[in-house]
Nucleic acid binder design. Structure first.
Lengths: 232, 232
DNA sequence: TATAAGATGTGAAGAACTTCACATCTCTTA
DNA sequence: TAAGAGATGTGAAGTTCTTCACATCTTATA
């Protein structure tokens, strides 16, 4: 299961590659773009991983999603007259991204209705994800935020093992906390509770979820399709 | 100011009216649609007010936005193969809405690139709103949620008065709390603190904001355009 | 205008989280 | 393999927010 559940992008989104202005080799730890910068391009990730996050004035970080192969980022600046990046994109894993000029893609979307349709579907899916995550975070406290994040991560990076689902992404407590708006310590305590109850286990910074059902029940998850319940 | 800052919808979105299947007279307190229901239509609001919210399993309500004239709701079900409403739409003020069949609008969007473009812009704006609200709620606690909600409401329903901005929408503490994921009591206490400090005043369930700057500074608001900082 | 329903206001107790401080563990890398 | 850096684990104190309980205020309606 799971990895096959990762939404497959259609031919049209891949066609975007042909519109690319240039490709960039990404370096771990560097930013692809940072909030506030003038936004002229959007990016299609060819390989590697990019974390999208919002930095608050006092330096705290709210991680929103992690993009992998074939994901698009920087899209929030499309169709805007004040094109500044609202979020920052940190390279988690080196790789390659294609940069596409905002005007080029806007023009193409205008002319190519199949692409437009595909793009809208993509945005629509994204919106739904945000909406459900919103509920988890606001209505179910920090535990809701953590459980929701873990569930989403199994959908995005989960590999089925015989004792559960391995989230194939090394994560520190701090990084996980950034997704939940939670302090490192709270995240650690909640994770340890889950370990003690046998819900999860952690090896080399990678979490295995042994009892996904428990996490889902705790937050009243309605078992939405993985497409709308992932971290990308 | 303020009311003129309400985003004006373009001719294209209004054209949707011509695709309408039927119009419905809405009745206060009733639901236009409820989450889980099979979704076949989306709605264009002609008059009245509709509150979009998510109900949690234990009955708590998270209010997401209030739609007024020319707003669209039910849009989250577009481009989906499992078309169920994810949210509920409660009529706050009676009026009239136009119902448009999902297939009709999808077909039209596919054929009419100007409409597609307009629709994408609309979704894009919406997404940005959600994103910034997300930050306010998760990163800045309950106070952040309340202040953010108040700011957004001044942008959506604010009427400039000589002593500040009147939010022209009657709201109970509970209703306001539902927007923030906050208990009625906490909302009440926070509002009273603001009253004592002269930041706001309340008359007949309507809030006047005397010191918007204070609210914005408290949550590190970057003074984004009202289009991306409203409650619709 | 009396009355009941709904909304607001507030203290007190407790739950949920954060912060601080520090110990311990686990990796690199020299 | 020794040393240092980064990550994890945990108690204790403090803050924030909720819940409960109840008093008071406001508004609609008979």
């Amino acid at each position: 299961m799971v990895q096959t559940m990762k939404p497959t992008h259609s031919i049209e989104i891949k066609e975007l590659l042909q519109l690319a202005d240039r490709t960039i080799k990404t370096v771990k730890g560097q930013y692809l773009f940072q909030e506030g910068e003038h936004a002229e391009e959007l990016y299609l990730i060819i390989s590697g991983k990019v974390q999208i996050s919002k930095i608050s004035k006092d330096g705290r970080e709210l991680a929103l999603r992690i993009c992998g192969d074939n994901d698009i980022c920087g899209e929030l600046t499309l169709f805007t007259h004040a094109p500044k990046y609202l979020l920052s994109a940190l390279i988690l894993e080196e790789g390659e991204v294609a940069a596409i000029k905002k005007e080029v893609i806007e023009r193409e979307i205008f002319q190519n209705s199949a692409l437009a349709f595909e793009f809208m579907k993509w945005m629509s899916d994204h919106f739904r994800k945000t909406q459900t995550k919103f509920r988890d975070l606001v209505l179910n406290g920090k535990k809701g935020a953590l459980f929701s994040t873990l569930i989403r991560m199994t959908n995005s990076y989960g590999i089925k093992k015989n004792d559960g689902i391995l989230i194939d992404l090394p994560l520190t407590n701090q990084e996980l906390g950034n997704f939940c708006g939670t302090s490192r310590e709270s995240t650690n305590r909640m994770l340890n509770d889950l370990k003690r109850e046998g819900i999860i286990s952690i090896k080399k910074s990678k979490i295995t979820v042994h009892n996904l059902k428990f996490l889902k029940e705790e937050i009243g998850c309605e078992n939405c399709p993985a497409t709308y319940c992932s971290i990308e």
